[in-house]
Amino acid sequence: MAATSVGMLIGDVVVGRAFAPATRERLVLPLLLVTGTPPITLILDLPHPAIVAAYVITGVGSAYLLGLQRRFLEAVPSNLQGQGFALLNTTTMTFQKIGPLVFGVFAEFLPVGLAIALTGVSSVTTTLLLRDAIRPRTSG
C-alpha cells in the first residue's frame, strides 16, 4: 500500500515543479483518469510488481489536486483561505474514504480484485460525467 504514497510524492513533485499553474489546471482531467484507470487492471491476475506499479501510477494521478488549487484560491476570500484549505482538505479526505468503505463491503461478496477494479470504473465514470466541470475555464 506504500506504493500509492510513493506515486503521490512523485506526482506532486513533478506536476508541482515542472508545470505552470495553467498547465496544472489543464492536467486535472488526464490526472483524474490516471488515478482511476490502473485499479481496473487488478481484475486480472497480475504479478506482484505489476500490482505495485498500478498503485504507483494511481498515486501519481492524485496530483490532480494541484490543478484545482488556483480555482479554489480565486473563489475564497484571501482572509478565509487558511480556513478554506483546511475545510477543503478535510472534506476531500472524508469523501476519499467513503469509496473504500463502500467497495470494502463489495469485497465481502466479490473477489477482491473485482471490487478494486470497480473502484477504478467508478472513478473513471465519475470523471467522465464531470468532465465539463473539471475542464479549466477559458478566459476570453
Rank of each mutant, 00 (worst) to 15 (best):
T125Y: 00
V28R: 09
A63T: 05
G82Y: 03
V6L: 12
L27V: 03
S5G: 13
P100F: 10
L29Y: 06
A2E: 12
V102Q: 03
F109W: 13
Y55S: 08
E108T: 14
S122Q: 01
E25R: 12
G82S: 14
P49R: 06
M1W: 11
V34Y: 06
L130D: 03
V76I: 15
R137A: 14
R135A: 15
G7D: 05
S122F: 09
N89G: 15
V28P: 04
V121F: 00
R71Y: 04
D132P: 02
L68Q: 12
P47Y: 05
P39N: 01
V121S: 01
L88V: 13
P77H: 08
F103K: 01
E108P: 05
R137K: 12
T58C: 11
L87C: 10
V121W: 01
G120T: 01
M93Q: 15
F95T: 14
I57P: 00
G113D: 01
A50G: 03
V52T: 08
L65P: 01
G67L: 05
L46D: 03
L73E: 15
G84W: 09
G99S: 15
P136E: 14
G99N: 08
G11V: 03
L68A: 11
P47N: 10
R135T: 13
P77A: 12
A54H: 00
P30G: 03
V13F: 10
E25Y: 06
M93P: 06
Q81K: 13
S123H: 06
F109G: 11
R135F: 04
I134W: 02
P49S: 08
L44H: 02
L87D: 11
A115C: 04
A20Q: 09
S78C: 04
A117Q: 00
V34H: 04
A117G: 04
S78W: 05
L128C: 03
S62V: 09
A107Q: 01
D45W: 08
P21D: 07
F72P: 07
V28K: 04
L9I: 08
P30T: 07
V14A: 09
A54C: 10
T92G: 13
L128N: 00
A18Q: 10
L66E: 11
L65K: 07
P38I: 01
G120H: 01
N79C: 10
L68S: 09
V76S: 07
P77Y: 04
T91E: 09
G104F: 06
L129T: 02
T4W: 14
E108W: 07
R17Q: 13
R71K: 09
T125C: 03
R131I: 04
T125Q: 01
P111K: 11
I51T: 14
A75C: 05
I116Y: 00
T4S: 14
I43M: 03
A2S: 15
I57F: 02
M93Y: 12
A22H: 13
